[in-house]
Design a protein around this nucleic acid. Structure first.
Length: 286
DNA sequence: CACCACCCCTGGACGC
DNA sequence: TGCGTCCAGGGGTGGT
């Protein structure tokens, strides 16, 4: 379940492999994982050029859980990993370890050795989006997202939370409010900030919102530094998992003792998502 | 407009 | 060992 830290770590592992490299042939195995755009409008077909065939990679971008590969012509390929997506770089001569559910393969010619970039996504909640320019990508998709959670400040968060009466956890998961937080880091940040996940977003006092903004940044940064949380299948471009899961305070620990007060953690459902929190340490604001 | 339930999908855990 | 059932959740959508 890649969230912001996993995508950021993926970006960092992909950059040295892709920037300055040339993309050769592209093999799209499953056409329906791609949504092509010609400016603002969805296009009917995906061409090899849309998928960056024959292009020089100049940069990678990330906003929230979205990744983008930018090439010299300014074309962009948007990538979202959904629940189970992976982008793997496999050097030529090496076998692809799991070759099932591979939907797209790019041949890569780089100074440090040739290889293939592979988009694999068993559950197909993720996908690829093609755009003629960065501007087109922003206008059609990224502009609908809230500010990036890695650098969210108190003022921005407070402003956005004031607009809704939804439970704070539902608000944190809403990408148009804040981009990048998913189920794991929402629970971790709320625990750290000592806020009950069902607290009404706009009723949370300023001091607690301040703690929350700090907690979100702290938790995400620490996770980026650990290479992300590997739950089930997440791995980076080189096939390595992240170690942050070992440092989860609440996620996956329902009924286990709170690491702060030793009382058992509670497992509930908020916004159709499994939620774990400490009823003693996380007061409800309504 | 705000909010919510539901759906998409597959692999893995678990019970028998 | 194998089979059925349930659960995981990011995000889009249609209904209230």
């Amino acid at each position: 379940m890649p969230e912001l830290p996993e995508i950021e770590h993926l970006k960092r592992t992909l950059e040295p492999l892709l920037i300055g490299s040339t993309i050769g042939k592209v093999h799209l195995r499953r056409r329906d994982v791609v949504t092509p755009f010609t400016n603002g409008a969805p296009a009917k077909r995906t061409s090899p050029v849309d998928l960056l065939a024959g292009s020089l990679v100049t940069s990678l971008m990330r906003h929230g859980k979205n990744l983008a590969i930018v090439v010299k012509s300014n074309r962009v390929l948007g990538v979202h990993l959904g629940m189970s997506g992976q982008m793997l770089f496999v050097r030529n001569g090496r076998r692809i370890e799991q070759s099932d559910h591979v939907h797209c393969i790019w041949q890569i010619r780089s100074r440090s050795g040739d290889g293939r970039l592979i988009f694999r996504d068993p559950r197909r909640f993720g996908g690829l989006w093609t755009f003629p320019s960065i501007t087109a990508m922003k206008e059609t998709r990224w502009d609908r997202l809230g500010p990036d959670a890695l650098t969210i400040d108190t003022k921005d968060l407070n402003e956005r939370l004031k607009r809704t009466r939804r439970p704070i956890k539902a608000a944190l998961l809403e990408q148009s409010i804040l981009a990048g937080v998913g189920n794991i880091y929402a629970d971790e940040a709320l625990f750290r900030a000592r806020i009950h996940p069902k607290s009404i977003a706009r009723s949370i006092p300023p001091e607690a919102v301040r703690r929350l903004a700090r907690a979100i940044r702290h938790v995400l940064r620490a996770a980026v530094d650990s290479g992300g949380s590997t739950i089930r299948s997440y791995m980076d471009a080189t096939g390595n998992g992240g170690s942050y899961a070992q440092r989860h305070q609440v996620y996956g620990r329902a009924d286990e003792p709170c690491l702060r007060c030793r009382q058992p953690l509670a497992g509930i459902t908020v916004a159709q998502r499994t939620t774990v929190f400490c009823p003693m340490c996380q007061p409800l604001f309504v």
